[in-house]
Nucleic acid binder design. Structure first.
Length: 281
DNA sequence: AAGAAGCCCTGATAGC
DNA sequence: TGCTATCAGGGCTTCT
């Protein structure tokens, strides 16, 4: 379930194997993921140097020496694993079904990077580096939650007049880029705000707390991910290090960590929301 | 025009 | 034990 912190963790895991190195070989094992690969995808990557691996919202963005950007999304189940193809190197056993290995990059330096995605909600695309601001998926994206642009003042403006529940508003990537179902539930709990409250009705001082808690939960999750980078790079791409710290997400019926009332689940916009009826108003 | 619902896809799990 | 139904959710499309 990759949200921003997971994608950032993946980025940090891939960077040492990819940055500054050429893609010696690129292979696609089917014609599409969520969308078709762009024309001549593998050819356009072969022999190309990847100068830097960045991130925008939940997208990874590789800056290529050809002037193109390699834009990748993990979808729901996308995973990258790194194996060492050099002779004599140990190859870790993966528990990932190789039937869903859809893309392979052999990097200069000996790293093989394999993208596995059973549900194929992920995507890979190429786009001119200088025109990323008009890349369709990036147009209209809100600020990163861990940036100076994201603040209570910003939320006040973004929420003004909004009649949608705050849960839905925070999931809207045009409002803030990179939050998903899990961290929205967590941030609302930490901020003491009911997920049902209409976005436009929240008082400025409570938005102050909300902005701070969104930032805090993302920061903490990235930090927790950071500690598992070596595991990611060397073994099997296991993520989920942060899940033990969820206070409400997927804890329906369990005791609220603050007041011990049962955590409730409700469905908003077709998605589960977990919250405490006492602590969140 | 904003907001909500439908859809894509497969694997894990619950329920019979 | 083995089948079927349900759920997971990011983001695009379609409906109200």
């Amino acid at each position: 379930m990759p949200e921003l912190p997971e994608v950032e963790t993946v980025r940090r895991g891939l960077a040492p194997a990819m940055e500054g190195r050429r893609i010696l070989r690129a292979e696609t094992r089917r014609a599409d993921l969520r969308f078709p690969f762009p024309p001549n995808f593998a050819d356009r990557l072969t022999g190309v140097r990847l100068a830097a691996l960045g991130r925008r919202a939940k997208y990874l963005v590789g800056e290529l020496s050809t002037g193109e950007a390699l834009v990748m999304h993990l979808g729901m189940t996308g995973r990258f694993t790194i194996t060492d193809t050099r002779p004599g190197k140990f190859h870790h056993e993966t528990r990932i079904d190789p039937a869903h290995d859809h893309v392979v990059f052999d990097m200069e330096g000996g790293a093989r990077i394999t993208f596995n995605d059973p549900r194929r909600f992920g995507s890979m695309d190429l786009w001119p580096l200088g025109e990323l601001d008009i890349y369709p998926a990036f147009e209209g994206l809100g600020p990163e939650p861990v940036s100076n642009a994201f603040s209570a003042a910003y939320l006040r403006e973004a929420f003004a007049g909004k009649k949608t529940p705050v849960k839905a508003a925070l999931l809207d990537q045009r409002v803030v880029a990179g939050l998903g179902n899990i961290y929205v539930s967590e941030a609302l709990f930490r901020a003491g705000i009911s997920p049902r409250r209409l976005a436009g009705s929240i008082r400025p001082e409570r938005l102050e707390r909300l902005a701070a808690e969104v930032r805090a939960v993302i920061d903490e999750a990235i930090l927790a991910g950071g500690s598992s980078i070596s595991d990611f790079a060397n073994t099997d791409g296991e993520l989920g290090y942060f899940q033990h710290r969820f206070r409400v997400y997927d804890r329906e019926g369990e005791a609220c960590p603050v007041c011990e009332r049962p955590i409730r689940r409700l469905v908003q916009s077709g998605r589960s929301t977990f919250y405490c009826t006492r602590c969140q108003r």
